[in-house]
Design a protein around this nucleic acid. Structure first.
Length: 700
DNA sequence: GCTTCCGACTCAGAAATATAATA
DNA sequence: TTATTATATTTCTGAGTCGGAAG
C-alpha cells in the first residue's frame, strides 16, 4: 500500500485526541485501546494483501469492451437441501401434516407470520394460491381450502424455538460454525482475474422462499423456487477449469464472454429477472467503474453552467416537447429526481421524473407539492418553490393531462431525455446529475461546517454527519423507524425533563438572593436564558405525579448504588453509615409511594420532596455555576433529541456508498487530521481503495 | 426508423450479524 | 462480571437506470 494513504491513520490515531480526564474515562481507554488494536489489525490485513494499484495505470483510451483476459473461479454455492421437520399446521383447529415439498412452502409463510409480509393480503393471497397449486399436484388429499381457516402458529412457534436454541449455542459450537463459514468463503469467495486474486461478491445461490416485493407489488408472496445447476450459466475463462456442479447435475451452460463481468447467471422464476454473480465491491473491476462514475460527474461540472442556461431558456420554448424536456431536466437537476422509466403492470406502481402523473403534483401557496412513491416505494414528499416558468409549465402539463392516471410529461421519455443529455456532454445521462449534485452538495456543506483541525473528534464527526445528512435528504434516502424508537426518544425526553426541573429549582433557589445586589452585579447573573431553557415542554408538563416518579427513580438508583457498595467494599467502619443511609432512602421511597397513591384521591397542591433531595442555598456563585452546568446539559440533550429525531427516517449509508465521491472524505480527513476509519468502515475502505491517496487539496 | 425487449450493471432498504454500551 | 440492549456494519436481494439488440 502506498505510504501517504495508509500512513495517515497511524500518525493521526485516536491517542492524540483522547483526553484522560477522569477515572470514569479509564474504562473508555481500555475499549479505545482495544479498538485501536482492532483497527491496526485490519490495517495490517489491508497492507498484507498483495496489492495491484490499478488506478495508477489507467489509460483512458484502452479498449473497454474487453473486461478481462483471465478468469478462474469456483462457481456458486447452493443452499442446503430441505430437511423436513414434521411440524403440522392447524386447519379448523385440526392438525394437518404436510409432505416435505408442501411443508417447506408453508414454512416460508409461517416464518413470516409476525412480519408485515405475513399480514399483507396480497402476500397471503399469492402464497395461498401457490399452496393450492402444490396441493392439487399432490397425490395426497389435503382438507385445506381457505386461508382464513389455517393456523400457522405451531410451525411459527417451532421456528421461534429453533431460533432460541441457536442463540443458546455454546461458544465452541458457534466457533465451529464460524470456522465452516470461513472455509466456504475461502473456497468460493475468491477468483483469479487477470493473474490477481479478487473477491467474489454474492457466490451464494439465493435460497427458495416467498418473493418479498417492496410496497404494493402484485407478485409479492409468490413462490421463489429453488435454483438448480441446470438453470445456471457459468461465465469463465477459456483455459480455466470448469467448476464441478453438484453431484448428478450439470450446468445449464458454460460460456467465455470477456465483455461482461459476471461469473454466473440464472433466471429467477417470479419476475423472470436475471440474477448475476458479480465480483465484490472492493474488486478492481467495480472500483474502475466507480472511479469512472465520479470522473464523469466531475466532467459535468465543466458543463453544468451551460446546460442549466440551456434548459432554463428552453422552459419557455414554443415547442411543447422542448418545454417538457426542459422542465423535467430542471426537476432532475434541482431535486435530484430519478429519470423515471416506464414500468409494467406486474410491478409496484412507483414513478420517477418522466413517469410522474397528474395526481403526483399539486399547487399550494404558490409552491409545488410533489407527493409520489419512488424507487422501493419510498414516499417522496416535497413542497418547493420553483422558477415561475417551471410553475407555469407544470400547471399547464397537468391541465393537459386532464385526469389522474395520465402522464404529466406526455411528450417525452427517458430514452429521449438521455439522448438529448448525451448530445450536451458525451456520456451524460439523468443519473449523473444525482451523483454530481450529491457530491457537490456534500463538499459545500462540509465547507460550511464550523470546525477547525483543532476541533474534537466528536465535533468533526458531527460536522461530517451533518453534511452527509444534507445529501441523504436531497436524495430522499429513507429507512424504517427503529423498533423501539419512541421508547428511546421518551427516555431522552424524560432525562431532559429531569434536567429542566433541576435547573428550575436551582433558579428558584438563587433568585431571592439576587434582590439585594446592585443593578450592575445583578446583570452579571442574568437568569433569563436559563429560565427560558427550563420552561416546560407543553407536550410534557411537569406534574406532581411525574415528580414523584422522578424522585422514586433517583431513590431507587441511589439504593442500588449503596447496595453494591455494601456488597463490594464495605469495611466495618463505613458499614454502619451505609446501612443508615439505606434505611432512610427506603423509608423515603415508601413515603413517596404512599404519597403517590394518595395523589389520585386527594389533590394536595404542594409536592413532597424527599429530604435528601431538598436544596439548600450556599453561595450565589456556586448556585449560578450549577445552573450554568445544567443549562449546558439541557442544550446538549435537546440537540441529541433533535438529532435523533432527524435521523429517525434518514439513511446516511446509501449516499455515502453510492453518491459521495470518497476522495472528498479522504481529503477532508487529511486536512482535519482525523483518521478515515472514522467514516469508512473496513468494507468501504476496501471499496474505496482507489480514493485513499487523494490529495488533501482535492476538489470534487 | 420506430418501438419494445432485455441484458448488464448500479443503487436501495431490510434483515442478519457483529460490536459496543449499559444495567 | 455477565446478560441485555442499542448501535454499527455487512449481507442479501429487490428495484432502478440505460444502452443496444430485436422485431
Amino acid at each position: 500500500m502506498n505510504g501517504s494513504g495508509n500512513g495517515n491513520g497511524k500518525e493521526n490515531g485516536y491517542g492524540k485526541r483522547v483526553k484522560v480526564e477522569s477515572e470514569v474515562a479509564r474504562k473508555k481507554i481500555k475499549t479505545e485501546g482495544e479498538k485501536k488494536r482492532r483497527v491496526k489489525r485490519e490495517q495490517k490485513e489491508e497492507e498484507e494483501a498483495e496489492e495491484y494499484e490499478w488506478w495508477r495505470d489507467q489509460n483512458g483510451d484502452k479498449d473497454d469492451t474487453i473486461r478481462w483476459t483471465q478468469l478462474e473461479h469456483q462457481g456458486v454455492l447452493f443452499p442446503p437441501e430441505y430437511v423436513p421437520h414434521g411440524v403440522p399446521i392447524l386447519y379448523d383447529g385440526e392438525k394437518v401434516y404436510l409432505e416435505p415439498e408442501i411443508e417447506e412452502l408453508v414454512g416460508f409463510f409461517a416464518a413470516l407470520l409476525e412480519t408485515e409480509h405475513g399480514a399483507n393480503p396480497t402476500f397471503q393471497r399469492n402464497f395461498f394460491n401457490e399452496l393450492k397449486l402444490l396441493m392439487s399436484k399432490s397425490k395426497r388429499k389435503y382438507p385445506i381450502k381457505e386461508f382464513s381457516r389455517c393456523d400457522f402458529r405451531p410451525m411459527y412457534e417451532y421456528f421461534q424455538k429453533q431460533k432460541e436454541e441457536k442463540k443458546q449455542m455454546s461458544k465452541e459450537e458457534k466457533a465451529a460454525l464460524l470456522e465452516e463459514r470461513k472455509m466456504i468463503e475461502e473456497k468460493y469467495g475468491y477468483c483469479i482475474l487477470d493473474g490477481r486474486r479478487e473477491k467474489v461478491g454474492n457466490f451464494r445461490i439465493e435460497p427458495p422462499g416467498l418473493f418479498r416485493g417492496r410496497g404494493a407489488h402484485p407478485k409479492t408472496g409468490c413462490y421463489k423456487r429453488r435454483v438448480r445447476a441446470e438453470q445456471i450459466t457459468i461465465n469463465i475463462g477459456k483455459d480455466a477449469k470448469i467448476p464441478e456442479p453438484p453431484k448428478g447435475s450439470k450446468w445449464g451452460n458454460v460460456i467465455h464472454d470477456q465483455t461482461v463481468t459476471w461469473l454466473a447467471m440464472w433466471k429467477e422464476n417470479v419476475n423472470d429477472n436475471t440474477k448475476y454473480v458479480f465480483l465484490a465491491a472492493g474488486s478492481s473491476l467495480k472500483g474502475q467503474s466507480d472511479l469512472k462514475k465520479y470522473e464523469k460527474a466531475r466532467e459535468l461540472k465543466k458543463h453544468i453552467v451551460r446546460i442549466r442556461k440551456d434548459y432554463m431558456a428552453a422552459l419557455t420554448s414554443s415547442d411543447g416537447k422542448t418545454r417538457q424536456r426542459a422542465t423535467a431536466l430542471y426537476l432532475i437537476d434541482r431535486f435530484a429526481l430519478r429519470a423515471g422509466n416506464e414500468k409494467g403492470d406486474d410491478q409496484a406502481d412507483t414513478v420517477g421524473c418522466c413517469s410522474l402523473r397528474y395526481e403526483h403534483v399539486t399547487f399550494e401557496d404558490g409552491k409545488v407539492v410533489f407527493d409520489f412513491l419512488g424507487k422501493d416505494s419510498i414516499r417522496y414528499y416535497n413542497k418547493v418553490e420553483v422558477h415561475p416558468a417551471v410553475y407555469r409549465n407544470l400547471v399547464s402539463f397537468q391541465r393537459a393531462a386532464k385526469t389522474p392516471g395520465n402522464l404529466l410529461f406526455s411528450l417525452i421519455n427517458t430514452v429521449e431525455l438521455n439522448k438529448h443529455l448525451s448530445s450536451l456532454m458525451p456520456g451524460l445521462s439523468a443519473k449523473v446529475f444525482r451523483t454530481y449534485n450529491a457530491s457537490h452538495t456534500f463538499q459545500q456543506e462540509l465547507e460550511k461546517q464550523d470546525v477547525t483541525p483543532a476541533s474534537s473528534i466528536h465535533e468533526l464527526t458531527l460536522a461530517y454527519n451533518r453534511a452527509n445528512r444534507q445529501v441523504a435528504v436531497l436524495c430522499n434516502h429513507q429507512r424504517a423507524v427503529a423498533k423501539n424508537f419512541s421508547g428511546q426518544l421518551s427516555k431522552i425526553a424524560d432525562r431532559l425533563m429531569g434536567l429542566r426541573y433541576e435547573c428550575r429549582r436551582h433558579i428558584d433557589l438563587l433568585k431571592p438572593n439576587l434582590t439585594d445586589l446592585s443593578l450592575a452585579d445583578r446583570a452579571k447573573y442574568d437568569l433569563a436564558p436559563f429560565e427560558q431553557a427550563c420552561r416546560d415542554d407543553p407536550d410534557r408538563p411537569i406534574t406532581t405525579e411525574w415528580l414523584y416518579s422522578y424522585f422514586a427513580d433517583l431513590l431507587t438508583k441511589d439504593i442500588e448504588r449503596l447496595e453494591k457498595k455494601k456488597a463490594s467494599d464495605a469495611t466495618q467502619s463505613n458499614l454502619d453509615s451505609i446501612e443508615e443511609k439505606l434505611a432512610s432512602l427506603s423509608s423515603e421511597l415508601s413515603t413517596l409511594n404512599s404519597k403517590k397513591e394518595a395523589l389520585s384521591s386527594s389533590k394536595s397542591s404542594k409536592p413532597y420532596i424527599p429530604e435528601m433531595y431538598r436544596l439548600t442555598f450556599n453561595s450565589i456563585d456556586k448556585s449560578f455555576s450549577t445552573i450554568q452546568r445544567l443549562y449546558t446539559r439541557i442544550v446538549a440533550t435537546k440537540t441529541a433529541l433533535v438529532d435523533k429525531d432527524e435521523n429517525k427516517t434518514t439513511a446516511l449509508g446509501t449516499s455515502k456508498i453510492n453518491y459521495i465521491d470518497p476522495r472528498i472524505t479522504v481529503s477532508w480527513c487529511k486536512k482535519f487530521d482525523i483518521p478515515v476509519e472514522k467514516f469508512f468502515p473496513k468494507t468501504l475502505r476496501e471499496k474505496f481503495k482507489w480514493a485513499m491517496h487523494a490529495d488533501k487539496n482535492f476538489k470534487f
